[in-house]
Computed example of a mutant assay.
Amino acid sequence: MGPTATPTPAPTAIPTPEPTLAPAERERAVLVALYEATAGSDWTDSTGWLSDAPVGEWHGVTVDDDGLVTQLSLLENGLTGQIPASLGELYNLRHLDLGQNQLSDELPSTVGNLSGLVRLDLAQNQLSEEVPAELGKLSNLESLNLGNNDLTGTVPPELAELTNLGALLLRNNQFTGDIPQELQG
């Protein structure tokens, strides 16, 4: 009898990691998701959007030297639909102004991930549901305008943690209960 060969084990498949997008590519994808979720083809001005141009050349988008979005201003621009949760991935965003549109449904809690945000204006839309408590994590926020929407529930006491907040506008919503004592005064 000859020597017996040891069977060679079958090669195991090594999972291929998901490709990681560079920050600027990820942010482009977030902006495309916003465009698609808010009927971008019907916006009043969508100059540059979905083109190959750098996102800093897209209407309403301002970027820093690294091409990362620092400001998104689409005030009174005909946006309809829902704000996508992925908007919370624009980590360098300092100013977000989507006021005077027809955005509806809830404000995604992921907006609380935008830790550098200084100004948030979503006034005069049709946002409903409760204000996410996660907005209380926006420690750099100086101005918050959620007025003239259809927001419900109570005003979250977490907003009192916004120590830099100088302007808080919540009028003309459907809130119930009292304004938290920490926000009065």
Rank of each mutant, 00 (worst) to 15 (best):
Pro157Met: 07
Pro180Leu: 09
Leu170Gly: 04
Gln102Trp: 10
Asn148Leu: 13
Val131Cys: 10
Glu18Pro: 15
Asn173Gln: 11
Ala22His: 07
Leu68Ile: 07
Pro19Cys: 08
Leu165Ala: 03
Thr70Leu: 00
Leu117Val: 04
Glu130Trp: 05
Glu182Gly: 15
Thr154Leu: 05
Ala5His: 07
Val155Ser: 05
Gly147Gln: 12
Asn164Phe: 04
Trp43Ser: 11
Leu135Ile: 09
Pro15Gly: 03
Asp42Cys: 09
Val30Phe: 01
Asp97Lys: 03
Gly136Leu: 08
Leu90Lys: 00
Leu183Cys: 14
Asp121Lys: 10
Ala5Met: 08
Arg119Tyr: 01
Gly88Val: 05
Leu103Ser: 03
Leu34Cys: 03
Leu96Pro: 03
Glu36Gly: 05
Pro23Glu: 02
Trp58Cys: 01
Ile179Cys: 08
Leu117Trp: 02
Asn145Lys: 13
Leu21Asp: 13
Glu89Ser: 15
Gly88Met: 07
Thr20Ile: 14
Val30Ser: 01
Thr44Trp: 07
Gln102Glu: 12
Pro156Ile: 01
Leu50Tyr: 09
Glu182Pro: 06
Leu170Glu: 00
Leu165Thr: 03
Thr6Arg: 15
Gly40Val: 01
Gly60Phe: 02
Ala39Ser: 15
Tyr91Glu: 10
Leu98Ala: 03
Thr12Ala: 15
Leu135Phe: 11
Arg119Ala: 08
Leu93Asp: 01
Leu68Thr: 02
Thr12Glu: 13
Asn148Ile: 08
Gln126Met: 09
Glu106Lys: 13
Pro15Ile: 06
Arg119Glu: 07
Thr47Cys: 11
Leu74Cys: 10
Gly78Ile: 05
Ser41Leu: 11
Pro15Ala: 12
Glu142Asn: 14
Gly78Ala: 12
Gly136Ser: 10
Asn77Ile: 08
Thr4Ser: 15
Gly48Gln: 04
Pro84Tyr: 05
Leu90Asn: 01
Asp121Ile: 04
Leu72Trp: 00
Gln181Ser: 15
Val32Asp: 00
Glu142His: 13
Pro17Cys: 12
Gly153Cys: 12
Asp42Pro: 11
Ser104Ala: 13
Leu34Phe: 06
Gln124Ala: 12
Ser143Tyr: 13
Trp43Gln: 07
Glu18Ser: 15
Asn92Met: 06
Trp43Phe: 10
Thr154Tyr: 05
Ala133Tyr: 05
Leu31Ser: 00
Ala22Ile: 01
Pro17Trp: 07
Gly153Arg: 08
Thr38Cys: 11
Trp58Ala: 04
Val69Ser: 00
Arg94Ser: 13
Tyr91Trp: 09
Asn172Val: 07
Thr62Gln: 12
Gly40Asn: 04
Gly78Met: 11
Thr47Met: 08
Ala133Asp: 11
Thr70Met: 01
Leu98Asn: 04
Ser115Lys: 15
Ile14Gly: 05
Gln124His: 13
Glu158Pro: 08
Leu21Trp: 07
Ser128Met: 06
Leu34Asp: 00
Gly147Leu: 08
Glu27Pro: 07
Leu79Gly: 00
Met1Ser: 14
Val131Arg: 03
Val61His: 02
Glu130Ser: 14
Leu87Pro: 02
Asn173Arg: 07
Ser86Gly: 09
Leu72His: 02
